[in-house]
Simulated scan of single mutants.
Amino acid sequence: MLNLFLLALGLASINFLGSSQAWAQAQKPSESERIKIILKGSSTLYPLAKIIGYNFSKQRSVIVNVNGGGSSFGIEHALHSGHHIGMISRDLRESEMNRGLVVHPIAVDGIAIIINKENPLRNLTLLQIKKILTGKITSWEELGWDSGAQIRLSGPSSDHGTHVAFKKLSHVGGPLTKSFRGFISHRRVMKEVNSFPNAIAWVPLGHYLTYSHRGAQGKGRFDNITALKIEGIAPTRENLSNKSYHYRRTLSLLAKEKSPPIIDELIKYFRNRDSQDVIKQSGFLPY
């Protein structure tokens, strides 16, 4: 009799546990029921936002999709109703202000001016950079490298915040030299410099640190590039922090003034301790 009782008790326990698990599973929202948050914009912020967005989605049972495209796309994206956040790596233009958007700074990044290691130069002045951008200096010989090579200038395309920020910090108001080559991907810019000894370009400092001496392995790594000092100051996180390095800008999220609570929650999550660790590991400084 006792054995029958214990057997019945065991079967009842199994049925209870099974029912409890089934009930708990039923309480979880299905894929179609989960809130979907879409972040779009800055390619500089894209890798960082992918990690933080994924971490947030695990804790809050929401779907977080992250897409690049450039800061200009991020601004237009943030204006959509619903669960949309824009990502930007430049200041808003005057025409983009007063449109009901709130800027939420989350990180500080530098812009690295990179060259091929075959180029012996290791420092340029701000005036020299401006003259390269505007086509007033076109050969490396004018800068002290007697190679006979013309300067091969490239960088992010004009839709990117890094393009706009770099022009502004270089005090270039007009168009760049006609020989400029613009690329959608920062990695494509680095590949260009890695391949051509006479190349020069600019990329986010965090991306340079990730894909050069400190970062990716094998095909993802660019061993033939180095970053120039500007006015004798190296592009390091220390010099970003003490504000001695000139090419310094803020990375931000954009959301409408009246956003759903989950949007505010995600923006706050970007500033918590764990997310700040991700920001640092990505080569940036927490804001």
Score class of each variant (00 low, 15 high):
Q281L: 10
R90S: 00
A165P: 01
S81G: 15
A49T: 15
L79R: 10
D159N: 00
S147P: 13
G70Q: 05
K168I: 10
E96D: 08
N98W: 00
E265W: 00
L285Q: 11
D146P: 01
Q281V: 10
G74E: 08
G161R: 00
E142F: 03
V203N: 01
S95Q: 11
K243T: 11
N98E: 10
I137Y: 02
K28E: 11
A199Y: 05
V102L: 07
R122P: 04
E265S: 11
L143N: 00
H213W: 05
L7C: 12
P261D: 14
G215P: 09
G174D: 11
G220M: 05
A49W: 02
M1H: 09
V108Q: 11
S212E: 10
A199W: 05
A107S: 14
S81Q: 14
T177V: 14
R181A: 11
K268H: 12
L2N: 14
G74Q: 09
L209K: 14
L6M: 08
A78H: 07
I63S: 14
A22W: 00
I132A: 01
T210P: 00
Y245W: 05
G232K: 04
S195K: 14
S282T: 10
K58Q: 14
I129W: 02
S61F: 05
L48Y: 03
S158I: 05
K167F: 01
V102Q: 08
A24G: 12
I38V: 14
H77M: 09
E76S: 15
A22R: 06
H160L: 07
Q276N: 15
H77D: 13
L127Y: 02
K258V: 13
D109Q: 03
V103L: 02
S185Q: 13
E96V: 03
Y245K: 08
P260N: 09
A255P: 04
G10P: 03
